[in-house]
């Protein structure tokens, strides 16, 4: 771990200025991802600006929606009565992530910005374009069980590991960012990048940009929503694949649907094609399957993760079917 200075920011503006003014600086939230990476040598900031104690730790009601402060802990967010009532998919997604100890420390912003769990990324002795642009992608031709089937490139096949982000993607969350130039809002779908030829950039954020809040829009249909995560053991593992689903039925027809997939891409994957195929159609297993297939038509599995296509189909169908049954 390279030596670093530690600064506790007093307010968001100070934090932004401190990081923006120093190329080697980084924001520190809960630290469960960044501190780990510093020990592994994956990250080496020379200044940590601790933003975990900024007054960004509230969950507030907005017009039918919620505004979640960036410093709200994952465990608190999952337990919040309004989250559980209005966006159960989000509560379930949070609870399916990590362990109790980690959820107690991890912040909303930190969770969004956590980096891939690709073992080659985390090992400084194996080539990785995300870590060292141009050095190669060790996952391609290697161990790909946790890697992408959608939206990948020849430079990087990593997946985004956050469950919370998948749920937020399904909910059309908006991320509030404070940068050196002021505040702006980003739909979560625009926060994340696909790897393309610059896999070292997970998001569109610039150095010094600080996430201050996430806004969840008014979405009554989200009261019937679910998160389903498929993993190699019953708990405490990253997703093989996952799905966040919101299903709004009008009798037996799909009035509206939101679907986001985890474990399949460099970002939470909003399954827009599947949604389109479902909207206005019947809420049957057949329709669910066809919609999943429509989304997976563009899948490019790797040797070692071909199973993710069938698994994604299976979990999408299961999640929608269960939601539809709930609704009857």
């Amino acid at each position: 771990m390279t030596p670093f200075e530690y600064l506790r920011a007093g307010d968001p503006g100070e934090a932004v200025a401190a990081v923006a003014g120093r190329p080697g600086a980084a924001f520190l939230g809960g630290g469960t991802n960044l501190v780990d990476h510093m020990k592994l040598g994956v990250a080496g900031p020379d200044l940590l600006v601790d933003v975990s104690r900024l007054p960004l730790d509230r969950v507030e009601e907005t017009a039918g929606g919620l505004r979640v402060g960036a410093a709200v802990r994952n465990s608190d967010l999952a337990a919040h009565p309004l989250v559980r009532e209005r966006y159960p998919v989000l509560a379930r997604a949070l609870l399916s992530g990590a362990s109790g100890q980690l959820r107690n420390v991890a912040t909303t912003a930190g969770n969004l910005l956590q980096r891939t769990r690709c073992p080659y990324f985390q090992d400084v002795t194996t080539p990785c374009n995300k870590r060292v642009p141009g050095s190669g992608c060790s996952a391609i031709g290697g161990y790909t069980r946790y890697h992408a089937i959608l939206g990948a490139s020849e430079h990087c096949v990593a997946t985004h590991p956050s469950d919370m982000a998948v749920a937020m993607a399904a909910l059309d969350a908006v991320v509030v960012v404070l940068g050196p130039g002021g505040e702006r809002r980003l739909p979560i779908g625009e926060l994340y990048r696909l790897p393309g030829d610059a896999p070292q950039r997970d998001t569109v954020l610039e150095h010094g940009d600080l996430i201050t809040a996430v806004e969840l829009p008014h979405l009554p249909a989200a009261r019937r929503s679910a998160y389903r995560k498929v993993r190699d053991r019953a708990s405490f593992s990253f997703a093989l694949v996952s799905v966040a689903a919101v299903l709004d039925l009008d009798g037996d027809a799909v009035r509206d649907v939101r679907l986001a997939l985890g474990g399949v891409a460099h970002k939470p994957w909003r399954a827009a094609r599947a949604e389109e195929a479902l909207r206005g159609g019947p809420a049957t297993e057949d329709a669910f399957r066809r919609a999943a297939d429509a989304e997976l038509a563009g899948a490019r599995p790797l040797p070692g993760n071909e199973f993710k296509v069938a698994m994604t189909r299976g979990v999408v169908v299961a999640a929608l079917r269960d939601l539809a049954e709930e609704g009857r």
Partner: peptide
């Protein structure tokens, strides 16, 4: 990984052992 000769999943995050939940 035969290209490098090392065990890729060399930690508890990736080498899974049974937990309470299992």
């Amino acid at each position: 990984d035969h290209r490098t000769g090392h065990v890729v999943n060399h930690d508890f995050a990736e080498y899974h052992i049974a937990t309470h939940a299992d």
